[in-house]
Design a binder for these strands. Structure first.
Length: 480
RNA sequence: GCGGAAGUAACUCAGCUGGUAGAGUCACAGCCUUCCAAGCUGUUGGUCGCGGGUUCGAGUCCCGUCUUCCGCUCCA
């Protein structure tokens, strides 16, 4: 990243590179695009898969007590009542037309009640509060809240104006109809988080994988949120992919597990994704979600601001307890040694795959000024690079292409490699630098004599010679 | 959803007060090329976001609409 670049410019450059080189495209672009939806291109899908594999392996392969699943996107509607999403994901919003500021309608009324209490008008506060509770439980909650705001003449906290829009409902869950005949009973939601697919499978996974507490269940999958505020490229999408793990522990031990996972997850970003440590920061939640008793986020210093890429939350036994309540099924764990029975506590590590992808690109993006021209290098960790090596004949004659093609065919079974004979050799190196390919092998005139090739390193432009027969071993070693 | 800015080739943009589209880059083919974006030739690619209006004539003026970018609540 060049020091003269403003962060806005940097983001533009990354978006432009993504389009031009086939990392990420706007969805349905020929129809004008669809907001906050993006498609991963040929190189993007490789990079994204590599990130997912790095996560999956670190979680499931390197932890014998973590099992993986892949749950359905659509779940029984009761799931979302139990999880609290039907209630808490449905926000009644109201706009002050004077100041153009938006408020949560329920927060507005709560604020008003508190003000009354402060002024000593306890009786009136109680009356409004009763009406507030009644409005919240009314069949048409948005209308009831609106009528209450109008009736009590609640003014805007910022502008002092009494100039409201109607209360509108912003439910963040997407719904669709199940079955050919659509009726009210058939409404299902696209999951707004992947976690619930893990909770409802708690017993089936535990038994089939023969797990004992403490153990975890890992999952990578799509989730959907009908966001009011979208944007920052792929940072906030309505359809996004989560990589998350729920770790079940004995109540009372959750804080130890919490600390362990905090450390492990931070290290994973630094060691496995190769993110510069100075660009990652911890953020502690002060206002906790309805299910949590401790919550930290890992944030990354994006060009557009320091934003969350992973949450590590102590979810208590909220989810399992609620599922036990709503389903009537026993969600207790029986410890066969101590004969104890309890609902386990949960530590969640939940990371946005698309956000990791964007972070990896931002962190790897490098410009070196050469002869006044910026030379773009994506300094990706070799394991993550979409293409592992470029294979070039120095020129298109004298038998060099034939040797290069043979090398390409020998390697392509094992590594994602690219053959290129178009343009000058410098241009071909440049193309690979821009897409993060860590190594290039060039067949030249020396190859004809001594069977050696040039290996050229992306980050330094340094070159070494290597025997043709050792190229595969070289890549294997560098990528492990 | 509200306020501000903008939509012309795959990318970055030009197109002045209306006269039926251009540049550079990229891509592709060929020539050339003995190691870091060289050069030459050619080719592909646009009903100027979409719809309507004014006009003999609209990329350009007017209206609507969609989308994107920047701010306002929440989150992975």
């Amino acid at each position: 990243m060049s020091k003269t670049d403003t962060s806005e410019k940097l983001m533009e450059k990354i978006v432009s590179l993504c389009k031009r080189r086939g990392f990420v495209f706007q969805s349905s672009e020929i129809y004008g695009g669809l907001g906050a939806c993006y498609d991963y291109g040929p190189l993007g899908v490789e990079l994204k898969n590599n990130i997912k594999t790095a996560w999956w392996n670190a979680m499931t392969r390197e932890h014998e007590n973590i099992a993986g699943i892949d749950a359905a996107i659509m779940m029984h509607p009761k799931t979302w009542e139990a999880s609290g999403h039907v209630q808490s994901f449905s926000d009644p919003m109201i706009d002050d037309k004077t100041s153009k500021i938006r408020y949560r309608a329920d927060h507005l009324i709560e604020g008003y009640i508190k003000q009354l209490e402060k002024k000593g008008k306890t009786e009136e506060a109680k009356r409004v509060n009763d009406e507030f509770v009644k409005a919240q439980n009314s069949d048409d909650m948005t209308k009831a809240l609106y009528e209450l705001i109008i009736k009590e003449q609640i003014k805007s906290p910022d502008s002092g104006a009494f100039n409201w829009t109607e209360v509108r409902q912003f439910n963040l869950m997407f719904s669709t109809k199940l079955g050919a005949v659509a009726d009210e009973a058939g409404i299902v939601y696209l999951r707004p988080e992947t976690a619930q697919g893990i909770f409802v499978n708690f017993h089936t996974v535990r038994e089939s994988a023969r797990m004992k507490i403490p153990f975890g269940i890992a999952q990578i999958g799509k989730a959907f949120r009908n966001e009011i505020v979208k944007g920052n490229f792929i940072f906030r999408m309505i359809e996004f992919e989560q990589m998350e793990m729920q770790y079940f522990v004995k109540p009372g031990t959750q804080l130890d597990a919490f600390e362990m996972w905090k450390e492990k997850r931070m290290n994973w970003h630094i060691e496995r994704l190769g993110i510069k440590p100075e660009n990652l920061v911890w953020y502690q939640h002060e206002k906790l979600a309805h299910y949590a008793d401790a919550a930290f986020d890992i944030k990354y210093k994006f060009p557009f601001g320091t934003e969350e890429i992973e949450g590590i939350h102590s979810r208590t036994d909220f989810d399992l307890r609620r599922h036990q309540e709503y389903s009537g099924k026993n969600m207790m764990y029986s410890d066969t040694e101590t004969k104890e029975k309890y609902i386990p506590y949960v530590i969640e590590t939940s990371s946005g795959c698309d956000r990791n992808f964007l972070m990896v690109l931002c962190d790897a993006y490098t410009e070196q000024i050469e002869d006044g021209e910026p030379h773009v290098i994506l300094k990706l960790k070799p394991e993550l690079a979409p293409v592992k090596a470029g294979i070039f004949p120095l020129t298109k004659k004298d038998g060099l292409p034939e040797i290069a093609e043979k090398l390409y065919h020998d390697l392509k079974r094992y590594f994602k490699v690219q053959y290129d004979d178009a343009g000058s050799i410098g241009k071909r190196y440049y193309r690979q630098d821009e897409t993060g390919t860590p190594f290039c092998f060039t067949i030249d005139y020396d190859t004809l004599n001594d069977q050696t090739v040039t290996v050229r390193y992306r980050d330094t432009s340094n070159q070494e010679r290597l025997n043709l027969s050792q190229v595969k071993a070289f890549l294997t070693e560098k990528l492990s």
